[in-house]
Amino acid sequence: MMKQPKHLDEEDLVLIYYREPGVAAEAVSHLSECARCKADFDALAETLNACLDWTPPEPELDFERSVWAQLAPQIVERPKARRWWILAPVLTAAVVLLVTGAFVAGRRSRSTNTPTEPVVLTAGLSAAARERILAISMADHLDRAEVLLTGLANADETDSAEFEADRLRARDLVSEGRLLREVAAGQHKATVPVLDEIERLVLEVANAPDHAGPAEIREVKQWIGADSLLFKVRIIETNLRSGRGQKL
């Protein structure tokens, strides 16, 4: 007896119509060969295509402005770390220098028993405290990187003025990031690849042409999106702040 072909059911046809991934290749080839399934598919497609004709009414001409007018009183600027932008990199660099200085000096003093200046600067700080300060400094750096990346990911490709502001922030992050990377290589190895990735991106932004056009801005946005860089930055930052960074 000849085996009856298995026809496609409505669910198969819906998935094929929407080109959903995971539809078996046999189902698609069956559809092209079976007149009955093809007729079912055409009927389904006709109905679903007709649904596309339904267009919502257009809101009034100044809709955008009226949306903002109602929204504006409820949109309160958060006093985020924005004001930190100017001072924070300097502070972080100072903290990192202090901590690395203390590690170096600590090692030297153990071998020579001769106290040096950095030891005086960090006198009273335990190794755990220094480690914590370093973790916080790294988390702060990542927070600033995150703010920059989020801004860039949402940048208006035609707004070169905003991109210019991001470029200046990127320059601040380059030197700070390199300093942190040196320290991280010793104590937070798992953060090094992400710090490297951030460095490559901020360098690209920092060295962008004076009047970057939509193509350059789009390229940066694609870079951020393709590498899930923001996601990685957030995870590491959260770990560092919660103390899990020490186990990285």
């Binding site: 919502p56 809709f63 955008e64 929204l71 949109i75 985020k80 924005r82 989020t150 801004g151 208006d156």
Partner: peptide, 20 residues
């Protein structure tokens, strides 16, 4: 960083699509 003014731009850019 998306500040209030940048957010306003996003509201103006996307409000019609969100309405639809």
């Amino acid at each position: 960083m998306i500040d209030r003014e940048a957010f306003r731009g996003l509201v103006e850019q996307h409000s019609r699509a969100v309405f639809r």
